[in-house]
Structures are given as structure tokens and as C-alpha cells.
Design a protein around this nucleic acid. Structure first.
Length: 427
DNA sequence: TCTGGGGTCCTAGGACCC
DNA sequence: TCTGGGGTCCTAGGACCC
């Protein structure tokens, strides 16, 4: 018999907080979205940029201020094209540390507002504020306070959408920006939703929009008028069910504290010219360094190494390998990358590589141990887990999953039992 | 509009196990 | 000896999001 044991953190406390309030009746979900985030941070920090079109990016526009957006600048547009539209724009290099810091300042205010915060990205989050009415105020007054606090304490504008469901809250903030506040009246949700273009549905991008429009479907209401089977036939099983539900405003997802990210990666666009192996190895080394450094900083280890390639004609390919043990060590990941790179050697030579990327998935916490315990049939699992707890001096080993019945020899549990990750991997 | 860098989720086939 | 059904993991690719 084999079982994996994981150390769990204080998950139960978080779960308690989330279940104190059951949403659904009233509009109590806030979607808060910082306006043109990177560009706004630049304008905040450099007074000479305020009121002017600002482009953040190198080569390609990563973010544009509203002044630049008003002139037709979009992301990702290359800087040359953006400057043609907007010759007086000021281009600045991204400063990721400044954005991370600003983001964490804003998230501190979110956390101070409600225990139920779900971060979606560096600049947006859902907040569940139902059940706070008696103590703090209505969702609308909470949102108003939130907006003025972010402006006063961090110096940034934030747009907030309020609705009964996550999806509508997000749509509402999209409609309200920049620097706006919009509450969707629960009585008038479909009136609000159905006239919107299909692209507003979550998960409808370029490809799906084209498929829907081919069938004459342009608005959310058009999709809502179709039977489920038709939507599934157009968009596929999972996407079809989601689309159909959203078009009818069925979204039962609750605001949940964010699970940890499930991959860490980095990539680099390359010039369109032949590269030799030495040059590629150098670039790969940099990328691997960056990724493993970030993994160690966030105390994560990973098992699956994915290399991404993009070629001259914008075709893509990925190659991946899953290692027997999770790691954040540079040499381990680098070795895996080299063997993956080798399998692509001829393609790279023939097609002209224009992007090289790495991501590591199958992540676990560095201090989370996944242990395989071989047992003889009849071994008392609970007793074995107690034994592990005693030996590691911790009560936090508490979850047993993936129990396969399999006869095997009895093996002393410590000190040399096989583990997916050794204790030495701790940073 | 000719394309950056960071992610998530889904699908589908094959290997493998019971 | 022949065979089915259910499940997980791995790999590759695609769509989408900010």
C-alpha cells in the first residue's frame, strides 16, 4: 500500500472565514480593478508624466495611460506603431518592483476591508462584503470607502463593480472604468447583461467570437436564446456549458482566497536571425536562473519542466518532461531543459526560433513533503501516520490521499524511506 | 495591430494499473 | 487464455486572460 502525506498549513481557518456568509441574494461581490495599472504607477511616481500619454514597455506596449488609449493605443502593440498614433507619447521602461509594491499596498487595503479577498492578477481582485452590513456598511458604501482609501493611501484610481455574481461584478467594473463605480441591481441583471457583445462573456476570445459571429450571434442575449446543445456544439463541452450558464447569469462561484499559483515561468523573445547552440545555451541559462530563483524565493519546488518554442511563422511548440522528484535547483532544471532542447534541434535549425520560454509546473511548497510509504498488506495506516507525526514532531501532517492497495515488503519508515523530496530541499 | 511576458484551464491520446 | 471497464498520469496543443 502506498500513500502520500502532505503537510497542510492553516487551511481550516481560511475555510471557516469563507463559509461564514452564503452569498446569492444581494449584490455583495466587489470586483476591484486598478486603472491602467503600470502606467498609473508611473504617473504617480513622476509628476512630469501626469496628464500625458505614457507607454510602458520595451519594444511592445505592456501598458498605456488613458491619455494614450484615447488616441487608439492598445496592448500589445509595438512601440513604433503606438508612437505613430501618438507621437508625443512618453515611453518608459517597466519597473516591476514598483508595481509589485503598489499592488501589495492595495491588497493590504482589500484585506483590511474584508477577510474574503480573491486576487485575480497583480491589479484586480474579488471581495465578498456580504455579512458586513451591520458592522461596516452596505456593499455600495464599502466600495466607496475602498476607492477613496486606495486613492488617498496609495495614490491610484481603482474602479469597482458590484453585483450578485463574480461574473457580473467583473463585467460591471469593465463598463464603469476608468475611475468608476457601478452596482448592478439584482432586479435588472438580464437587462444589463443581454445587450452586451459576446466578447464580454468570460472565456470568449478571438476564436470563439468568430465562431459565434459566423452563426449570427453577436450579443449575450443571442447566446442566451440558444439551447445548451447548440452552444456546446459551437464552443465545445466545457466552454459551451460555461458560456450557456453565464449568458443566463448563472454563476455560483464564490469568492475564495486564492490557491497558490500552479506554475512559474519566464520567456524571452528572440531576434529573427540564426542562433548557434552556444548562444541558445546562454539564453536558456539566464531563463532557468530567473525561474529557479523565483521558485526558491517563493519556497516552491516543481516536477514538470515545460520548454516553449515559437518560430518565424508564429507557429508554436512545447516539449515537457516530468522529473521523478520535485526540485528548484538550477542544475536539475537546466539538465532537463538541455535534453528537451536536443529533441527540437533540427526544428530549431530549420524554422528559425523567435521565442524561448520555460515554465515549471506540478508545484509543491518546499516545506510540503510528499512521501511514499511502502507497506505490507494489513499495515495500520493510521498508526503509520501517527508514527510519521511523532518522528517529525508535527501535528500538521494530516492528509492522506492516493491510497493504492499494493502488496510490498515492509520497509522501515525512517530514516531512509523514499520521498518525493528530501528534507534538504528546504531553503 | 504583426505579436511581450506572466499566467490559467481544457482536450485528447497513449501508457499503465487494477 | 482472452477480455472489459475504470482510473490516473504524462505529453502536446489550443484558447483565453491581464
Amino acid at each position: 500500500m502506498q500513500t502520500k502525506l502532505c503537510r497542510t498549513a492553516l487551511e481550516s481557518t481560511a475555510i471557516l472565514c469563507e463559509h461564514m456568509f452564503v452569498p446569492g441574494r444581494s449584490a455583495s461581490i466587489l470586483h476591484a480593478d486598478l486603472d491602467s495599472f503600470y502606467a498609473s504607477v508611473e504617473q504617480r511616481d513622476s509628476p512630469q508624466l501626469r496628464g500625458k500619454p505614457v507607454l510602458v514597455g520595451r519594444g511592445v506596449v505592456t501598458a498605456a495611460s488613458y491619455e494614450a488609449k484615447a488616441r487608439g493605443v492598445r496592448t500589445p502593440m509595438n512601440c513604433g506603431a503606438a508612437l505613430k498614433l501618438c507621437p508625443d507619447a512618453i515611453v518608459v521602461d517597466p519597473r516591476m518592483e514598483a508595481y509589485s509594491e503598489a499592488s501589495s499596498d492595495v491588497f493590504d487595503i482589500f484585506e483590511d476591508t474584508t477577510p474574503s479577498v480573491e486576487g485575480l492578477s497583480i491589479d484586480e481582485a474579488f471581495l465578498e462584503v456580504g455579512g458586513l452590513e451591520r458592522l461596516v456598511g452596505t456593499p455600495l458604501s464599502i466600495a466607496t470607502t475602498l476607492r477613496s482609501r486606495v486613492a488617498a493611501e496609495v495614490g491610484l484610481n481603482i474602479t469597482v463593480g458590484i453585483a450578485r455574481t463574480k461574473f457580473l461584478a467583473k463585467v460591471a467594473s469593465g463598463v464603469a472604468k476608468p475611475d468608476g463605480l457601478l452596482l448592478v441591481d439584482p432586479e435588472k441583471e438580464l437587462d444589463f447583461l443581454h445587450p452586451l457583445p459576446v466578447q464580454k462573456l468570460w472565456g470568449v476570445g478571438k476564436v470563439t467570437t468568430a465562431k459565434l459571429q459566423d452563426r449570427g450571434l453577436y450579443t449575450v442575449g443571442d447566446v442566451a436564446a440558444l439551447p445548451l446543445e447548440t452552444v456546446v456544439a459551437v464552443a465545445g463541452t466545457a466552454a459551451g456549458h460555461k458560456l450557456h450558464a453565464l449568458a443566463h447569469n448563472r454563476d455560483h462561484r464564490q469568492v475564495e482566497r486564492r490557491k497558490r499559483r500552479s506554475s512559474i515561468g519566464s520567456q524571452r523573445a528572440l531576434e529573427r536571425r540564426p542562433k548557434d547552440r552556444t548562444e541558445l545555451n546562454g539564453i536558456l541559462g539566464d531563463i532557468v536562473d530567473r525561474v529557479t530563483h523565483r521558485m526558491r524565493l517563493s519556497n516552491r519546488v516543481g516536477r514538470t519542466v515545460v520548454l516553449r518554442f515559437r518560430f518565424d511563422d508564429f507557429s508554436r511548440a512545447t516539449r515537457s518532461v516530468t522529473l521523478p522528484t520535485a526540485t528548484s535547483q538550477t542544475p536539475d532544471i537546466l539538465n532537463a531543459c538541455h535534453s528537451l532542447l536536443q529533441t527540437m534541434e533540427t526544428t530549431i535549425r530549420n524554422e528559425g526560433l523567435t521565442l524561448l520560454g520555460l515554465s515549471v509546473t506540478n508545484l509543491a511548497d518546499s516545506d510540503e513533503m510528499q512521501l511514499s510509504l511502502p507497506f505490507a498488506d494489513g499495515t495500520n495506516l493510521d498508526a503509520a501516520i501517527d508514527d510519521v507525526r511523532a518522528r517529525f514532531g508535527t501535528a500538521s501532517i494530516g492528509r492522506a490521499t492516493n491510497v493504492n492497495r499494493q502488496l510490498g515488503p515492509t520497509v522501515p519508515i525512517l530514516p531512509d524511506w523514499p520521498s518525493k523530496k528530501s528534507v534538504e530541499d528546504k531553503p
